[in-house]
């Protein structure tokens, strides 16, 4: 009797698992596309892909646990009065344990391999980047272009060329984050930290401070533009020299 009731309810469990997985996968794809800002660099694209991939992988796992929890609430709930009688004692299930460990290990290894690969790709550099010196101070960003005397509070970068941001701070630690490039690094006083990325779309970008830096931290934003190489040269030469 116990067997037949278990079988019947397990069907529901599998259905719940399947449906929740489908919902999870749909959300995994839809939510990032709906909410993540427009990604305009190789690293930005990679962030979005990674986010979607991890979500899709997590969907069946999370759904499995949810389906199991729902199944327990439905099928294993004690509906009688008073203290429930003891259930069949199952202390171990080696097969289940090994399966569980294997699945979680395989997923972890996959996530790791993916992440380490992406990290290596991100760290590789073209060798001829455009250098931008970024300086944070309470509560503005300034961008300087070595080799020129251009200093600006708006960030201009050409597309399809690697940019290297050399970041420092004049006072406290700030967080230099180019939202649409999917890269960030802290601006530390007395040190230069670097990040690089390659813009691949034209348009407006946003720079924000993501490290708490005092009174006006919330307003420490800057606007940036990804422009064509010729527009970029034109902009550089139009700037007042030696500012």
């Amino acid at each position: 009797m116990a067997t037949s009731s278990t079988k019947r309810s397990l069907t529901r469990f599998y259905w719940a698992w399947g449906i929740l997985t489908v919902v999870g996968v749909v959300l995994s794809i839809w939510l990032p596309h709906r909410y993540v800002p427009r990604m305009m660099s190789n690293d930005g694209n990679l962030s979005l892909t990674t986010m979607i991939l991890f979500s899709v992988l997590a969907a069946p796992v999370a759904s499995g646990v949810y389906a199991a929890a729902l199944h327990i609430m439905h099928a294993d709930r004690y509906r009688g009065e008073g203290v429930p009688p003891a259930a069949e004692p199952i202390r171990e299930n080696t097969k289940l344990l090994v399966t569980w460990l294997t699945v979680s290990a395989v997923l972890t290894v996959f996530v790791l391999v993916w992440g380490l690969g992406a990290l290596a790709a991100e760290n590789s550099t073209s060798g001829n980047p455009l250098v931008v010196d970024v300086t944070g101070q309470q509560w503005v960003w300034t961008f300087a272009y070595p080799g020129t005397h251009v200093v600006s509070n708006e960030l201009y970068v050409p597309d399809n060329r690697e940019v290297e941001f050399r970041v420092t701070s004049l006072d406290v630690t700030h967080g230099f984050w180019v939202v649409n490039f999917g890269v960030q690094v802290d601006a530390n006083p007395g040190v230069i930290t670097t990040i690089h990325t390659t813009p691949d779309k034209l348009g407006t970008i946003e720079v924000r401070c993501e490290q708490f830096c005092g009174l006006n931290h919330a307003f420490m934003d800057a606007i940036g533009h990804v422009v064509t190489p010729s527009q970029f040269s034109a902009w550089l030469s139009s700037q007042p020299q030696g500012a």
Binding site: A58, Y66, A118, L119, E122, Q184, Q211
Partner: peptide, 23 residues
């Protein structure tokens, strides 16, 4: 805990953390 755990994996991935950190 599932929600908290899964979203932790995103943040452990450096390329993704470079977007989500500090947010």
């Amino acid at each position: 805990f599932i929600v908290g755990g899964v979203t932790g994996i995103y943040l452990s991935d450096i390329p993704l953390d470079e977007q989500l950190h500090g947010t």
